[in-house]
Nucleic acid binder design. Sequence first.
DNA 1: ATAAATTTTTAGTCTAGTCTAAATATTAAT
DNA 2: ATTAATATTTAGACTAGACTAAAAATTTAT
Lengths: 216, 216
Amino acid sequence: MTRSEENYLKSIFHLAEDNTSVSTNALAKKMKIKASSSTEMIKKLSEKGHVYYKKYKGVKLTKKGRLAATSIVRKHRLWEVFLVDKLGFSWDEVHEVAEQLEHIKSSKLTDELDSFLNYPKADPHGDPIPDSNGNIIDSKRQVLANVSIHANCICIGVNDSSKFFLKYLDKFKIKLGTKITVLNREFYDSSMTVLINNKKTSISKEVSNNLYVEII
Amino acid sequence: MTRSEENYLKSIFHLAEDNTSVSTNALAKKMKIKASSSTEMIKKLSEKGHVYYKKYKGVKLTKKGRLAATSIVRKHRLWEVFLVDKLGFSWDEVHEVAEQLEHIKSSKLTDELDSFLNYPKADPHGDPIPDSNGNIIDSKRQVLANVSIHANCICIGVNDSSKFFLKYLDKFKIKLGTKITVLNREFYDSSMTVLINNKKTSISKEVSNNLYVEII
DNA sequence: ATAAATTTTTAGTCTAGTCTAAATATTAAT
DNA sequence: ATTAATATTTAGACTAGACTAAAAATTTAT
Ligand SMILES: [Mn+2]
Ligand SMILES: [Mn+2]
Ligand SMILES: [Mn+2]
Ligand SMILES: [Mn+2]
């Protein structure tokens, strides 16, 4: 499998973790390539048995394709943990490097890394780490925006791993494990007033929609 | 820089660490490609200022090319240390994986890795690790074959990092740090009798030529 | 139900990196 | 100093993966 093939499979997986059908265009958009290119690659992946493909009907991962995809995701997230826990990277610095490291081919490496890191369940952004069979335990996470008033919750993940969002969170001292108490929600703009580190803070809907929390 | 360009520079470096001229053919042989391919790439590297090239006269690294090459070697060897010291790989398993890891682009990663590993001076095969400026402290290593009789020495490296040789050494419990006393040398086949771990062992010239030692 | 807009595919082109076969230059041998 | 052998370069072809432009299918709007 080439690096390019791996990236296509990973993108298809991310666009449809539930294994619904992914359109040529959606894939092209996600990968920042032209639709004609994704059509081409889809054909090749179909030949190789990684996806089901019917012209004009989009594409779905096969068992084999899904396993390949989750293997990449597993490596990506394990490396992110490594970078943060062992090398002192911050959570907004790891993604680009993990994009490279995820393509290293050595199951021994992946498994030893997993062990070295003490079998982490989630990456630095709270995303679950698939096991080597492609299984993902997805704790039904909910978004802060949907939490009812007066609830106490803990930040357990982010829905947007962009530098911009992560640095915003850093500024407000919000990280995984941070306790958040919902005080109020504005009808007008869906902004929320919350208590973080014993400080009242106002949070826009963009932010509350991108924070995963667990009620306690 | 593409992965391929990096591999060419690394090969040129290994063929001539002393920066003598490398022939098209030697490069092709080392990289297991055809001479025509190396000619092509040499031209491109020359365009980009990584090598000096005069038709029919072979190729030499420029300052810039040498720095690029040593950067790859630095990464290769640091990753090998990581794999052995942190992930429990044996010294005959690390090379293929390091061949992939050496192409990861992130100077922060490389430098943090170096720090995490406690600034190792040599990789698991005793090869020196270049610093980030491309400087290599090469302790003038000598080969066991050249050591005089009755000398006491310590194994500090191997000249052949192939699985075959490394596994041979494992079988005889020879590793970096192992003390070797030279007892005798046969005129006929240049084989040596040596004392290793208090056991008399006979060693062929192939082996003694591939073991670097330090006299104590 | 047709027409318009959108999505998807096809056809043809480009670059990187490889190859084979042929041409040319260099080196070694007579 | 020629000739033979070897090394190197050139020419032309191939594949992977991208692109643009145009054709075809599908979806949406009238
Ligand atoms: Mn990531
Ligand atoms: Mn992540
Ligand atoms: Mn190596
Ligand atoms: Mn090594």
